[in-house]
Structures are given as structure tokens and as C-alpha cells.
């Protein structure tokens, strides 16, 4: 179950990102998840909640935007929904030179911070709270 490794990577990235600095807590993380990314959304949600425990993401919601798989065949111009299991052979010319237009996304696209305490006031992020484990 590599969803755990993925969840931990997400938490690390969020805690390391400058955008998370100066904020008390992250209340939600937005993720684009492609149909062909090889990640099970349910498992990822579960692992994410575990990985967030004890960090500034504790209790954060995982907002998953599912991205359908789509492929395009340059030689003949066909474009189609790949489905799952995917059809990656061109349905029009039966060629094998297609490209994925979408579907392998595994990407953090945004964070939501619960009201940033003294938002504009402090110039520095004196109060990033990292609980001790």
C-alpha cells in the first residue's frame, strides 16, 4: 500500500512549502488525482489522515479532484477517454503512438488555511505550531 508513502510525501511537501509558513494550520489540501495514477482514493484518504496527525495538517481535509484518463493519437488525430483498465491503443487507427493528455496526475494544487490567526499583523511566522510527538 504505497498510499501511505504518498500521503507522507504530501504532508512533507505541504509543511515544507513557503505557502504554509506563517500559518497556524492547514485545514484542507487539494489534490488532482488522475484515473491512471495507480492510487486508490479511499486508501489515500485514510493514510492522509494518519500522516497528518501531529503536524500543522492535523485534521486537514483532503479534497480530491479526479481527473479522467484521456489519450490522443497524433498520427490520426483521434482523442478518447481511456477508461479503466485503459484503452491506450488508438481505437481509430489501431496505432500505438498515442500520448496521454491527462490521467496520471498526482499533484497538490492548493492549500486552505483555517483563519490565519493574526493574519496581516505579524511579519514573520513566529507561531508556526508544530506539536511535539
Amino acid at each position: 500500500m504505497h498510499e501511505m508513502s504518498i500521503a507522507v510525501a504530501m504532508v512533507e511537501q505541504v509543511t515544507e512549502t513557503p505557502a504554509a509558513d506563517g500559518c497556524q494550520a492547514v485545514s484542507a489540501v487539494r489534490l488532482r488525482l488522475g484515473e491512471l495514477a495507480g492510487v486508490v482514493a479511499g486508501s489515500l484518504r485514510f493514510c492522509f489522515s494518519l500522516a497528518c496527525a501531529g503536524t500543522v495538517l492535523e485534521g486537514a481535509e483532503l479534497l480530491i479532484e479526479h481527473v479522467p484518463g484521456r489519450a490522443r493519437c497524433e498520427p490520426c488525430g483521434a482523442e478518447w477517454a481511456t477508461g479503466m483498465p485503459p484503452q491506450l491503443c488508438c481505437p481509430q487507427c489501431e496505432g500505438g503512438k498515442a500520448e496521454l493528455v491527462s490521467g496520471r496526475e498526482l499533484q497538490i494544487t492548493g492549500l486552505r488555511h483555517a483563519d490565519g490567526a493574526d493574519g496581516g499583523g505579524a511579519a514573520h511566522h513566529a507561531s508556526v505550531q508544530v506539536k511535539e510527538s
Partner: peptide, 16 residues
């Protein structure tokens, strides 16, 4: 008063 930050970060970027 929530603040939303947009990012573009591939999750497996470090491994890649």
C-alpha cells in the same frame, strides 16, 4: 476568513 493558496506540486517529485 480562510486563506487559499494555489500550488503546483507533483507529489512524487522528490523520488523522480
Amino acid at each position: 476568513m480562510c486563506r487559499v493558496v494555489d500550488l503546483q506540486q507533483a507529489v512524487l517529485v522528490k523520488n523522480d
